[in-house]
Design a protein around this nucleic acid. Structure first.
Length: 821
RNA sequence: GGGGUCGUAGCCCAAUGGCAGAGGCACAGGUUUUAGGUACCUGACAGUGUGGGUUCGAGUCCCACCGACCCCA
């Protein structure tokens, strides 16, 4: 049978090579301590097992796989593990609906995804697989919690928290997006609850400072984290309140405007409002609070919203000039920011001005900006200028005034410079079942007692179906036998903590567990982490900018302080892939524009789908599935397959390529050179375009050139197979085998371009007159500037545009000459 | 309102400050084919969102504006 008659049959190749890979196990990381190969650790953000893999997974795992396979070809010892982020609410909701256990749904989905991953040809080291819902994994969440507790980094406190009425649990600040639950989209309300927190605020400065190690991260993610942490410098100022011993501290970024304060505002929902309220005004405050409680933070802070508030019948005293400032409660001040109270400087802050104008409070200019009087214009002047009406600060600039006022406050003991953060501590308690139990026992006598390490894990009780239905407290509370235990300290009757941990705890350190997945003496083997860590390349979505990516950085720093890891940042480089959308919009059931990954694979084959994902554009860009054509990808792969098969049938391995067709050899080596650079800079779409050109050149050589048996054709086909192996492993394996090579192409070795073949013997030099192209010259690439200038000026075509001697000649040998007449 | 990213053929995308086009889709034509499809070959299509500036030379650098998206308000 003629080779060219053979059909490219992607499904058959998938069956054949998937089975071979199972046997050959080519993607396993080398564990031998004497292994001298340079190590690389590549990680994809692990999936949540919500069902089968979807198009988004198809993209992110294809991208990371190119990098992994490139590293394999380069001879590195590659760690590329996979696992599942398998605790979480969807499993619990499914279990309630089906009267089942969350584990059933979870592990069934994991198996479905594992099967799909294998078919999708991702080069995972399956021996390191982990699931965060396994007791052997979450045991170490608890162990780590104990360490955090010992160090004062895990603590319990009461306060207003974000409550999602849909999911019936509290949420961390990071999980509230524009006042809505990041998971389900329900509007979040405030509740007063006692909850566990991780003290991430202790690490705020280090989370900022260490960003200088993150040159391999997208700038926008760093900016998002910087904004989220929200460090600002200013001053704390203590105001005495008439008729009260204890002063109230406010934080301000503009202490220089202290003389411009004309009233004082406390957050309506802060306990302080009640404390400061005159007895005869309490009823009014309560009524107002009820009104405020209905609003989200976003609504409260909206600048276009009419200001509201109530006077509390009290006065604060300005520490610098003794002025009496009326104390108001209002909703535009948040109890969570600073100290929940502010000094209002209406002339220079728009929100304060809106409030002042609404309630006829005085406006005093203390910064001369040259702009119209805010009291008249209604526009505050937050800019800089010389201080006025400010006693000792008069005439000073903003910076000078800030320095001076801080000195004054410090001398009088009524304030000091202060740093404030927007970042809040990480609320980690959750009132749901399918998570890691918090390993604390509450004893009436001993208080909060950690479960001793040797009694971990605190395993989840066996609850299922209706028992998991949300009721505002954790389902664990109803597992009486599980809850009631003896205190580990005094042996008296005590109760387990019934909340579970935020699942972001699980993902904060999973990358370390992969280094020694079966380790039983700790969360990870310190030595193995020293070998592999930190992660050289992390790949995942930007939706985790201030969630997982920040939490994981925090965990890493704590573990560093504990002496368990010797680096301070977990992810050296970060790549955020775009989303796969359809017809200009995200895929969704309601829009009916969903595309199923499995169906695409069934229709076009794994290789064509992967190729389509990578060829669509730069990895960071969104892919609109309506704009791409997997059918065309499949056709290209058929072409490439035929080239490899025909070359394989016409010659044997080991022929001397130097005797082959020179033109094709040059294309091959130029392609190798360019693809190498393009892969290293993650420009996969362009790299693939080069592979297409090489395929076309080889095709032409076979059909109308030296023919399939020419050594240059073999050289081109072999290079093509290895280049393609990063993107389309199935057709590459088959091609490699047809070319007469054994086993697997995974470690065939990255081809090296011969520099001699990259040199061109002539290049086209463009000759411009006044920037317009007037002639082209074929010249040697080594031509000197002077020689080239002479040639260019001698050109008839050029002389036609010249009128006498040129004023200036710019020579960029060998490609360009520009003559300025 | 502040900050960021990005605007290149009908579409997706390329182009170290140096000839705007590498690759693909779609389109048109040719060879093969009974025909369609496949395969192979060929072709047409923009002057880079708008307006300034820097430069011998700007898609690329700077400024303003318009539009899209993202983040913080």
């Amino acid at each position: 049978m003629a080779v060219s008659d053979e059909q490219y049959d992607p499904q058959a190749l998938q069956v054949k090579w998937q089975a071979r890979w199972e046997t050959l196990d080519p993607y396993r990381a080398g564990e031998d301590a004497g292994d001298e190969r340079p190590r690389r650790y590549l990680l994809d953000m692990f999936p949540y097992p919500s069902g089968d893999l979807h198009m988004g997974h198809g993209e992110v795992f294809a991208i990371a796989d190119v990098i992994a396979r490139y590293w394999f070809q380069r001879g590195y010892n590659v760690l590329h593990p996979i696992g599942w982020d398998s605790f979480g609410l969807p499993a619990e909701n499914a279990a309630i609906k089906r009267n089942a256990h969350p584990a059933e749904w979870t592990y069934a989905n994991i198996e479905t995804q594992a099967t799909s991953f294998r078919r999708y040809g991702i080069s995972f080291d399956w021996s390191r697989r982990l699931h965060t819902s396994d007791p052997e994994y979450y045991r170490w969440n608890q162990w780590l919690f104990n360490r955090f507790f010992e160090r004062g980094l895990a603590y319990r406190k009461g306060g207003l928290v974000n409550w999602c009425p849909q999911d019936q649990t509290v949420l961390a600040n990071e999980q509230v997006v524009n006042g809505h639950c990041e998971r389900c989209g329900a509007e979040v309300v405030r509740r007063e609850l006692t909850q566990w927190y991780f003290k991430i605020t202790d690490y705020a400065d280090r989370l900022l400072e260490d960003m200088d190690q993150l040159g391999g991260w997208p700038e926008r993610i760093l900016t998002m984290q910087r904004n989220w942490i929200g460090r600002s410098e200013g001053a704390d100022v203590r105001f005495q309140i008439e008729g009260r011993d204890e002063p109230v501290t406010v934080y301000t970024t503009r202490p220089d405007t202290l003389y411009g304060a004309t009233f004082f505002v406390v957050a309506a929902d802060a306990p302080l409002a009640e404390e400061l309220c005159a007895p005869d005004r309490l009823a009014e405050l309560e009524a107002y609070r009820a009104q405020v409680a209905k609003l989200s933070d976003i609504e409260r802070l909206a600048t276009d919203k009419e200001k509201t508030g109530v006077f509390l019948g009290r006065y604060a005293v300005n520490p610098v000039n003794g002025e009496r400032l009326p104390v108001w409660a209002a909703d535009y001040v948040l109890s969570g920011y600073g100290h929940g109270a502010i000094m209002a400087v209406p002339a220079h802050d728009q929100r304060d001005l809106d409030f002042a104008l609404k309630f006829s409070l005085p406006v005093r200019i203390v910064v001369e900006t040259g702009l119209p009087d805010p009291a008249e214009s209604g526009v505050a002047t937050p800019g800089e200028g010389a201080l006025v009406n400010s006693g000792p600060l008069d005439g000073l600039s903003k910076t000078e005034a800030i320095t001076r006022i801080v000195e004054i406050l410090r001398e009088r003991g009524t304030g000091d410079a202060a740093v404030n953060y927007r970042l809040r501590d990480w609320l980690l308690s959750r009132q749901r079942f399918w998570g890691t139990p918090i390993p604390i026992i509450h004893c009436p006598d001993c208080g909060e007692v950690p479960v001793p390490d040797d009694q971990l894990p605190v395993a989840l009780p066996d609850l299922r179906g209706e028992a998991l239905a949300p009721k505002g407290v954790s389902p664990l509370a109803s597992a009486t036998e599980w809850v009631n235990v003896d205190c580990p300290k005094c042996g008296g009757p005590a109760r387990r903590d019934t909340d579970t941990m935020d699942t972001f705890v699980d993902s904060s350190w999973y990358y370390l567990r992969y280094c020694s997945p079966g380790y039983e003496d700790g969360p990870f083997d310190v030595e193995q982490v020293r070998r592999w860590g930190p992660i050289d390349q992390y790949v995942g979505g930007s939706e985790h900018a201030v969630l997982h990516l920040m939490y994981s950085r925090f965990f890493t720093k704590v573990l560093h302080d504990m002496g368990m890891v010797d680096f301070t940042e977990p992810f050296v480089r970060l790549l955020n892939q775009g989303e796969v959308i359809n017809q200009g919009r995200g895929m969704s059931k309601s829009l009916g524009n969903g595309v199923d990954l499995g169906e695409q694979i069934d229709t076009y084959g794994v290789d064509a789908v992967r190729l389509t994902m990578l060829f669509a554009g730069p990895p960071e860009d969104d892919i609109d599935w309506a704009d791409v054509s997997p059918g065309a990808s499949q056709k290209f792969l058929a072409r490439a397959f035929r080239v490899m098969a025909e070359a394989g049938a016409a010659s044997a391995p080991g022929v001397d390529a130097t005797t082959g067709d020179l033109e094709l050899r040059k294309v091959t080596h130029r392609t190798i050179d360019e693809v190498t650079r393009l892969i290293e800079s993650y420009r996969f779409n362009v790299a693939i375009a080069r592979m297409m050109e090489l395929t076309t050149a080889a095709r032409r050589a076979i059909d109308t050139g030296p023919g399939a048996a020419d050594p240059a054709v073999r050289e081109a086909a072999e290079a093509l197979a290895v280049l393609l192996s990063l993107v389309t492993p199935y057709v590459a394996e088959e091609g490699w085998e047809r070319l007469g090579h054994g086993s697997t192409i995974t470690h065939a070795g990255w081809p090296v371009a011969d520099p001699a073949l990259l040199v061109q013997e002539s290049v086209t030099c463009v000759v411009q007159v006044a920037g317009k192209v007037r002639d082209r010259l074929e010249v040697a690439p080594t031509i000197s500037g002077a020689e080239l200038e002479e040639l260019a000026l001698a050109s008839e075509k050029v002389r036609a545009y010249l009128d006498g001697a040129p004023r200036k000649v710019i020579v960029r040998a060998p490609k360009l000459v520009n003559i300025v007449p």
